[in-house]
Amino acid sequence: MAAFSTRRLSSYMVLGIPIAWIIIFMLVPYGVLLTYSFWVKKYPLFVPAFQFGNYITVFTDPQYLRVLLRTLKISALVSLASLLLAYPFAYFLVFRLKNQSLRVWLYMAVIAPLWVSYLLRAYTWKSILGTQGVLNSFLMSTGITTEPSTIFLYNQSAMVVTLTYIFIPFMVMPIYAALEKIPNNLSEASADLGMGPIRTFLRITLPLSLPGIVAGFTLTFCLSFGDFIAPFLVGGPDGLLVANVIVSQFGAALNWPLGSALSVVMLFIVLAIITASDRLERFGQQGH
């Protein structure tokens, strides 16, 4: 009996600290965020209210709608580019490379940049792509171009390149893990049954690695969806994303209620993507 109650006490403590933390620093702040999103901007700051004006602005004002759609497009392109680079790489490592230690080294080489400052990885692309930058001066010194080009920096492709560079480890990790789990004898059996390598890949390997693709897509999509540093450094005027607009609402525009509404929209989009990817993964597992 006594042992039972001390065990209960310790389990309350184990549970209590994280639950209290989650309530104080996640649930309450999200609640406050939601509350603010219904308030009204009024000079000099804003006043309590309950109305949906901020949300109506977000979804009807073409200015915000355009940014929202642009952000979805950029995030999708980043995820796609990461997938196209990460999948062949992970596939080669798991199924083609026989040298065990080379495999570990190459895997580490792709994950290692995660430890190197995110800000610096964005900055170095700014220094490479700029008008006065490394790429332009290199092209001019080799005589390929004669004058500096402005086409590299401050546009959407610069942003896709930079964000892909930053977030690609998040695509490699889950795909590699998924491919590693596929038993080797499955593809052997498929070859024995007369399927060529391409059909084996399409019918066996690809479907079995789908959970990894979904997880990688979710991560890279959500992370680039909320980024405001890379767009600021390499995006230029038509490269601002939702997060940049939110930053300006909390800065120069000083419209916290609208900024909060945009943040709530972002939160819900992320939650929707996570839920969808959970469903997809579970569906994939049931399928087999």
């Binding site: 702040p29 406050v32 965020l33 997060a243 939110i246 909390f250 909060s260 972002m266 992320v270």
Partner: peptide, 18 residues
């Protein structure tokens, strides 16, 4: 586990508001 996928900006702004 939410903050793995949740952009830091949402964490930052919701805590700022609070």
């Amino acid at each position: 586990l939410l903050p793995i996928t949740l952009p830091g900006i949402v964490t930052g702004i919701s805590m700022l508001n609070m």
